[in-house]
Design a protein around this nucleic acid. Sequence first.
RNA 1: GGAGGGGUGGCCGAGCGGUCAAUGGCAGCAGACUGUAAAUCUGCCGGGUUUUCCCUACGUUGGUUCAAAUCCAACCCCCUCCA
Length: 404
Amino acid sequence: MSYKSEYLQTLERRGYIHQLTDAAAIDARALKPGLTAYVGFDLTGPSLHIGHLMSIMMLRRLQQHGGKPIALMGGGTTKVGDPSGKDTQRQMLDQATIDANKASIKRVFERFLTFGDGPSDAIMADNAEWLEQLNYIDFLRDYGRHFSVNRMLTMDSVRLRLERDQPLSFIEFNYMVLQSYDFVELNRRYACVMQMGGSDQWGNITQGIDLGRRVSGAELYGLTTPLITNADGSKMGKTAGGAVWLNREQLPDWDYWQYWRNVDDRDVGKFLRLFTDMPDDEIARLESLQGADINDAKIALANAATTLCRGADAAAAAEATARATFAEGGAGEALPSFAISDPTPLIDALVLTGLAASKGEARRKIGENAVRIDGEPATDPTQPITAPAKLSLGKKRHALLTAG
RNA sequence: GGAGGGGUGGCCGAGCGGUCAAUGGCAGCAGACUGUAAAUCUGCCGGGUUUUCCCUACGUUGGUUCAAAUCCAACCCCCUCCA
């Protein structure tokens, strides 16, 4: 399919498009300025992670092409819980946690989007604003009647749960109803005509489009992004420590940079297209590098992605530290640092720095010749360490001990 | 409410009175090889420790036994069918 709008051309070329509800209509609308679209985000944690980055980049691309992005905080829907792609109901969160999560999550958007009152400035909304006002009976009469349970039962989010004999509570069953209503409400308030999201959101999105047509005759659109996997087939964004968080409080800049620096060779081009603003020809050049030269492309990826999410200073510091640590065998200041006041036995230092989860593990790693102090292999678990020193576990994980 | 099935380590899934900290797979960590990649091979993979010792753990709480994840009772939760 060839698009007329620069917006869809870019999305297509960069690999963001999985499904469109009405490609021609969206294309036509994108030719005019002010296309308004939204993505919803649950507030289930204190930070979004790399798995959300696709959606965030979708909003960014929209803004880059003159559209108006809306980042919808799911202050209301988080209390209900989206069953899509899950086997079991999530733990219910209390209001204080949801509020704290929202405050924390909001911050990351300011790095990717420009907020304000201008025609293509981004808006942040929270569906708690309208969902918590709803009157149950009125809502059922005005909106509930437009939902076919027959059809809802065929949606993947519901059907898969039932087929696997996993429980699905009524509250979760209502999630798509509320999400559909969100779309209608955003259309009313902000003339939002498109909802975007991951491919697992297709059902929820099309339900919202139907609801909009029925209750207000609005013509709404949907666009989903493909599920991004690593070249080895695994789901993107999981590492040893868990999710790759976007917030600095949840994941230090150094680790964020390292995540991108260590992606599979085969993923470099794809990730550059999706998660950076780098021009196509530059990506093509980096992508054509062979063998060890691909490391240059990975550094470029890590710098660009980290600059977007954490700022140019963070990227530069991480790169400098990487060079000092890996290329020169020394240590850079962005490495995780821990203060010790007295000589500390090696195993305790390993636990303190988080390089080992327990003393037993620390002992085992020493036995496996995985531990080094200032680059020298260590074999005695009781050896006292005096700051300053660099502790290393394996080739990649390092920590600094400083006098304190 | 009735009948049946089930709840085991991050996940899946064996075990069904001692030899069980619990087979196997996945995930993870480390070593070798490399390029801070992939693939492959090897080791590790609850905690503590002076390492053939102690603690914690097989839904919860009690009980039987020299000894229980394994047997019994009650309770909680999940699934299926019936009402």
